[in-house]
């Protein structure tokens, strides 16, 4: 595990990846095992339909909430899933370069015959790998839970929703990594990325119910992640490409700025 920067970074994050994966498996199991209770509760749909639209936006769509995919969309892919994935990704992203710089280990690493671009890309690769592990773990939890609870779950829909969640997590993590690499400041990198996620969530939730502002939803990262309810309707390729594009630009800018700036001792 000490062959290169990529493996060393994975090695450093092994415990974190393990614990987060236990968390996502648990989330998958918990939500799927709970679903039959909601499905069988009479009058629940009526109750939801009576709620004001803004609460439906928060809880989940009344029409689909009692279907398996609709329930998972509301309980996993609207809030808890992106929350867990973002926290993992942002923490890993800030630690990657800004974290090493603030703990004074970057200087010595870069004194080795390795380019800054390579360090940045290998660290990004390690982040993407760790994120993949916990995304797959979530999928395993969901599918296994649906089997235990004895209901049919769309595997393709779930897989697509997880891909979408993965891309969203990657966007948040690589944004944090990029800001950290460009500035060397861990707090700034974490703060801005978390802000982008939180504000994105709030904008997407509330702008969707304010008709006049609905067109403005496109400024939120959440809009590109799950505005079309991926588990129900499949991936919106344009939306995912938008996230990948934003991330690509951020990483490219970070490579450029990290390459030209001074590294602090």
């Amino acid at each position: 595990m000490l062959r290169n920067v990529y493996l060393k970074t994975l090695r450093d994050s092994r415990k974190s990846v393990l614990f987060y994966s236990i968390g996502t498996v648990a989330l998958g199991l918990y939500v799927t095992l709970f679903y039959p209770t909601i499905r069988d509760a009479t009058g629940f749909t009526d109750f939801l339909e009576d709620l004001p639209e803004v609460f439906q936006a928060l809880i989940g769509d009344a029409e689909t909430y009692t279907t398996a995919e609709g329930f998972l969309n509301a309980e996993v892919f609207s809030f808890m899933g992106p929350l867990i994935v973002s926290v993992f990704a942002i923490v890993a992203g800030t630690a990657a370069i800004a974290g090493e710089e603030e703990s004074h280990t970057l200087d010595q690493l870069l004194a080795n015959p390795i380019s800054r671009t390579s360090v940045l890309l290998q660290k990004a690769g390690a982040l993407l790998t760790g994120l993949l592990v916990l995304s797959v773990a979530l999928g395993i939890g969901l599918v296994a839970g649906s089997k235990f609870a004895g209901f049919d779950l769309s595997i393709t829909g779930t897989a697509q929703a997880i891909v979408s969640l993965y891309v969203f997590g990657a966007t948040m993590g690589l944004l944090a990594l990029s800001i950290g690499a460009a500035t060397g400041r861990k707090g700034l990198a974490g703060g801005v990325s978390a802000g982008v996620g939180i504000v994105g969530f709030l904008l997407d939730t509330f702008l969707s119910v304010v008709e006049a502002l609905e067109p403005a939803r496109f400024i939120s990262v959440f809009y590109y992640f799950n505005s079309n309810d991926v588990i129900l309707n499949g991936i919106n390729a344009a939306h995912l490409l938008a996230l990948i594009g934003i991330t690509g630009v951020a990483v490219a800018a970070a490579v450029w700025q990290f390459g030209r700036r001074d590294v602090s001792v």
Binding site: L2, R3, N4, D12, S103, H104, T105, N112, P113, I114
Partner: peptide, 19 residues
């Protein structure tokens, strides 16, 4: 100053690999 959690041998191995 370098990775505090690595043993001396691990650190040297890492840098030897990078070199």
């Amino acid at each position: 100053i370098t990775y505090e959690k690595l043993t001396g041998r691990d650190l040297l191995e890492y840098f030897v690999n990078l070199r």
